[in-house]
């Protein structure tokens, strides 16, 4: 349940109602930003941000650093294996 998809805010359409156009792979839709704007994030500053879109609302601002850290961790898991393989390989010869 709770289908959510990452999209990028491309344009603020209504500052008062906090509405913006978000784009997902070339598909645009007007969504509501109420849940992701606060003193630190003015509505104007949201353009370019990636958000998690659920039923017409941006429910979370995607944290690029955290995403990169997760991917880095997954990448590192593979690296360790390759090193081990290399070590095993060299041990056998």
């Amino acid at each position: 349940m709770c289908l959510g998809i990452p999209g990028q805010i491309v344009e603020i359409t209504n500052t008062a109602d906090k509405l913006a156009k978000v784009e997902v792979a070339g598909v645009k839709r007007e969504i509501n930003l109420v849940c992701i704007v606060d003193e630190d994030h003015s509505i104007e500053s949201c353009v370019g941000d990636w958000v998690l879109v659920h039923v017409g609302f941006a429910m979370s601002r995607i944290d690029a650093a955290e995403a990169a850290a997760t991917l880095e961790l997954l990448h590192a898991l593979g690296e360790v294996d390759e090193e081990l393989d290399a070590m095993r390989g060299s041990g056998q010869t």
């Binding site: 998809i5 997902v24 792979a25 598909v27």
Partner: peptide, 12 residues
């Protein structure tokens, strides 16, 4: 097509 994929992802 990328845009069809996006459309499908958005609507499930």
């Amino acid at each position: 097509r990328a845009v069809v994929r996006g459309f499908c992802e958005l609507l499930g």
